[in-house]
């Protein structure tokens, strides 16, 4: 009885997967060992039978129906791609738009006169302070 290593070496030999040195070793074994030859022959025969009788199958649909389904999938994938592209383009706009809207909101909020609120313009004309006692809020707007 052969060891696992020998059997797998015999298989690797049959499959031409051994380097020259291992190949020579296996050939020496095959020359003097009938059992090793039988295993190698068996492996070779099974492989040959399977390769030469590869199972075949036919698409169980008509040419037109099979293609129409592929076409539909291609159209869906391409449509999905376009939708994805426009979505990411909208996201890119939002990336810039969101901070701009935030700044605009602060400016509107600052500029809006509110009861109980006092605004102070500093000597530096680009700096504005807004303070609301009612809201407990102070905003420094520096341009």
């Amino acid at each position: 009885m052969k060891t696992t290593e020998v059997i797998l070496d015999l298989q690797a030999y049959v499959d031409s997967e051994l380097d020259a040195a291992r190949r020579a070793e296996v050939e020496r074994l095959l020359n003097g060992d009938a059992e090793a030859r039988q295993i190698a022959d068996g492996l070779r025969e099974v492989g040959r039978l399977v390769r030469e009788h590869e199972p075949v199958a036919q698409v169980p649909e008509t040419r037109e129906f099979y293609w129409s389904q592929i076409q539909r999938r291609i159209a869906a994938a391409e449509g999905g791609g376009a939708a994805h592209k426009s979505a990411s383009s909208a996201l890119n706009w939002l990336r810039w738009l969101a901070p701009a809207l935030g700044v605009a909101a602060v400016v509107v909020f600052v500029a809006m006169p509110r009861p109980g609120a006092r605004g102070q313009e500093f000597a530096d004309s680009t700096t504005v302070m807004y303070q609301s006692d009612a809201d407990g809020l102070t905003i420094h707007w520096i341009e």
């Binding site: 009885m1 052969k2 022959d41 025969e45 039978l49």
Partner: peptide, 14 residues
Amino acid sequence: GGVERHLPVVMVNP
């Protein structure tokens, strides 16, 4: 049952 179990001899002539 292990690799060592013998490979059945197959010689089918199709």
